[in-house]
Design a protein around this nucleic acid. Sequence first.
DNA 1: AAGTTTCATGTAAACGATTACATGGAACCC
DNA 2: GGGTTCCATGTAATCGTTTACATGAAACTT
Lengths: 353, 353
Amino acid sequence: MDEAGQGDRSEHEGVPLRAARIQDVAKLAEVSTATVSRALATPERVSAEARARVQEAIAKTGYVPNLAARSLRSQKTGMVLVVLPDLANTFFSKILRGIEETLFEAGYGMIISDLDGSPEKEAHFAAFTAAGRVDGAILLNGHLFGQTREGEGKPAKIKIPLVALCEAIPGVDIPQIEIDNRAAASRMTQHLASLGHHSIAYVSGPAINILERERFQGFKDGLEAAGLPFDPELVIPGDYTVASGVAAGQNLVARSGRPSAVFCTSDEMAIGLMRTLFSAGLKVPEDISVTGFDDIEFAAVAEPALTTIHQPRRELGQAAATVLINLLQGRPTPKRIRLETELVIRDSVRPRA
Amino acid sequence: MDEAGQGDRSEHEGVPLRAARIQDVAKLAEVSTATVSRALATPERVSAEARARVQEAIAKTGYVPNLAARSLRSQKTGMVLVVLPDLANTFFSKILRGIEETLFEAGYGMIISDLDGSPEKEAHFAAFTAAGRVDGAILLNGHLFGQTREGEGKPAKIKIPLVALCEAIPGVDIPQIEIDNRAAASRMTQHLASLGHHSIAYVSGPAINILERERFQGFKDGLEAAGLPFDPELVIPGDYTVASGVAAGQNLVARSGRPSAVFCTSDEMAIGLMRTLFSAGLKVPEDISVTGFDDIEFAAVAEPALTTIHQPRRELGQAAATVLINLLQGRPTPKRIRLETELVIRDSVRPRA
DNA sequence: AAGTTTCATGTAAACGATTACATGGAACCC
DNA sequence: GGGTTCCATGTAATCGTTTACATGAAACTT
């Protein structure tokens, strides 16, 4: 039993001193390491008898393949990078869950990068992808990273599969999973208009944002469809956060001629805005109608319950993960997936008095 | 220049066919691979001249170290696993952000595992740690995974540093980062009692939960301190989610003798519960006082604004990450860190009429 | 000036898997 | 029965680093 040249693979009281390697399993099962490897990766190419012996040896040794070694040799990591602008945002967290679920089922792990607006972090994660630490990436941030300036040296180009989720990335040919923001915003605007509102304020997202640009277009589309004029005065800047909703509310309250309805491009902002309106003695929807966008968990339980656009967040995450997995495994995949949104009518909107 | 035996490292139009390796850098800088490696890991051990040449060569080739190889050789991954029960929960997402920030600064990456109550996933992530894919882990789920049953084989024991965050793990000797749940719950209870409420309902978390047990103890402590009796009838089961808050509200509305105050052990539940109360025609705080726990973003903008216990979520995450990093780098670290909570008084509580 | 220490560097052996290629035997076909 | 195909398995090269050890020169020491 005791071969020479074994090194220090001794045991004591049945507890292995070091984690088992494929060699240990091979020795115990009396096969070669190649057979062990195949028994795991392609069981059908190994005889039933050998497979059984390997299984037993694995159970006995508690062997777990070393992923660094596997990754080094096979040039695959089994990891997917998810890049997003704000981890703390409710909107993203449910999408993340959809992604994680789907990746997990396919045997992939998820590494998260919360960019947090820092270019330093972007550079770091660009290096990540180049370092072969992940097999692919899902981008929720609306732009590519690692946009190295031209001329200087040879930029480490990203050549792993990428998928853009929610925010399309202009000028890059990668699959996109999204909703039709423009149509949804237009629909919401027309909904308000159909209830008699002809002075509708718009609380925007960050101006650079593709998402914002689409929704803003949709807002204007909706006004036009309803035969209403667009008034730049009624556009209030925001950034999707509760705090910016609160600020937008203050902006609104300070005005003399108030619009009869406010279209907020995120539920967070709508909730923050309503808070400010209440504090100022205004009632929603009696004095002013408010809508959101996204249909986060809290939209339904806000007071008043928020009329909003429902986004299938979990499904968006699942779809993105599925597309990426297909890409990684060389299967064909559609270039663009658009999931349906839904206008959810609750209590924060009322026909104009 | 053109050495023989170079393999297929040819270039075309300045675009490298394959990612640069340390060898390529070494050749270009006219040093050995060891020097390149040292120039990166321990610059002070390399002459200024060689360092400069290496830097230049790295810039020219766009070299990025292959992390699988590094990890295989050095037995370190630069990765930390974060295990949590519910990724979609607002409470966790801000903690995650604190963790990510701190890990990033120290050069670590974050892998997330959303357990989602699935034992299958637990097993998978136990294997993860055993497979040497991560250097350490932060556990937010209140128990260890990979609790292999005794006797059978040799379980792949987890021997990487672990840190328990928020939920202490009983019977395991690992550092814990937490708040004093019991004291905080007691304080909130006494606050309600001091305002004349002597019939206080308690909406609980999941019963198995350590967190819940501590808060429940604190609730009873508070009652006792205020000289109030404990009435099991007034304990309503919940699981921290909005939906369970809604259910608890229905439970409450259906009762004949209603308590004058409700202590919810999460803000989500409090918000859901208030929603139900409104729908039933009850007013908060006029008819009934409601409190939450956690002080999530929405607590301050809820209508009415929620009286709650503030938890320093970001700081909790940062502290856990810091402790783990210290552990990983062999520095001493306290066994237990307790961060301060704060009673935040807003508008959802009023003295008993 | 001979011996010792320090320093910068190079050589080559790991790290632990996967997999191309080789091998030998069984099964199959005319 | 000889040639072909197929199958299960083994041998050994390979993935791209890090790092223990060796080396030789320079800088001190006494």
